[in-house]
């Protein structure tokens, strides 16, 4: 049997995710962004949402997210993606609107916009990549940088007396009555990525059912910013990040109920 006899549609066991573009990603090898992009792309494809989806890209490493997924996109100003998404879902309630934001974007400069969009219960999905650092600008401290973590603006490690405490913004978000599903996931192993995909799927379903804001934090690695190997970064994340940002659902309810398990 020759190779050409093997390459047939009926023998296909895996293919490139259709919603992903043939565009080389600018992300560093080992970065979590690529995995999360792929999960989103798979879900948009599997759930038949391409024609309905409008993505809001942030400022930060994911600023070019719009290059990689074959959907309509708007690139927001730093931190303002939830405001942009608010207008879109209000004006186009039949569409599926999501924001994709990093920790500097969402938890620092955009803290007001994310709080208020979630508090209004905008029917949007928020993907929150928390790698505890500003990747794009070269590894400065983020609001979520954990205590003692070395960054270019905390060369002696984050000192809480000087820099304040690492912010568990997802816990704050879970307190807001406008949110229906708030979860914290990771993508550093195949099983974690599969779990994360299930969570994002549930979040999308909630949004499509108009249950309010769904919020998925992905505790992520930035091996370049952390100055580690990809494998070393995964290990460091498991040992240091996840104990402070434990994985799991923080809230799973319908809009209006102010419940938080964590």
């Amino acid at each position: 049997m020759e190779l050409k006899d093997l390459i047939k549609p009926e023998n296909l066991v895996y293919g490139k995710t259709k919603i992903l573009e043939d565009e080389p990603m600018h992300y560093c090898p080992g970065c979590s962004h690529g995995v999360v992009h792929k999960l989103l792309a798979e879900l948009i494809g599997e759930m038949g949402l391409q024609e309905k989806t409008i993505g809001i890209a942030p400022v930060g490493c994911a600023v070019f997210a719009y290059k990689y997924l074959d959907i309509d996109w708007q690139e927001a100003a730093h931190g303002r993606a939830p405001a942009v998404a608010t207008a879109l879902i209000r004006l186009k309630p039949d569409n599926f609107v999501f924001t994709y934001q990093g920790d500097g974007d969402l938890a620092s400069i955009g803290a007001a916009e994310i709080m208020h969009a979630c508090n209004r219960g905008e029917n949007i999905l928020v993907i929150f990549i928390n790698n505890g650092i500003y990747g794009m600008t070269g590894g400065q401290m983020a609001p979520t940088t954990i205590e003692g973590m070395v960054t270019s603006t905390t060369p002696g490690g984050r000192n809480v007396d000087l820099n304040g405490y690492p912010m568990k913004i997802t816990n704050l978000i879970a307190q807001l009555p406008g949110t229906s599903y708030v979860t914290r996931q990771a993508v550093h192993t195949a099983s974690a990525a599969r779990k994360c995909k299930r969570s994002i799927k549930k979040a999308i379903e909630n949004v499509l059912d108009k249950k309010g804001t769904s919020f998925v934090e992905v505790v992520s690695t930035c091996n370049s910013g952390w100055k580690m190997t990809p494998v070393g970064a995964n290990t460091w994340m498991e040992d240091n990040m996840i104990p402070y940002y434990p994985l799991g659902d923080l809230k799973d309810s319908v809009k209006g109920e102010n419940s938080s398990e964590n």
Partner: peptide
């Protein structure tokens, strides 16, 4: 649609979002 935003910063970015979708905002 009429919405009281949380700030002028949010207002103008809402305008950006709506305008980006071809709406008169």
């Amino acid at each position: 649609v009429v919405l009281q935003a949380e700030s002028e910063v949010a207002s103008i970015n809402m305008v950006y979002g709506g305008a980006g979708a071809g709406k008169k905002v």
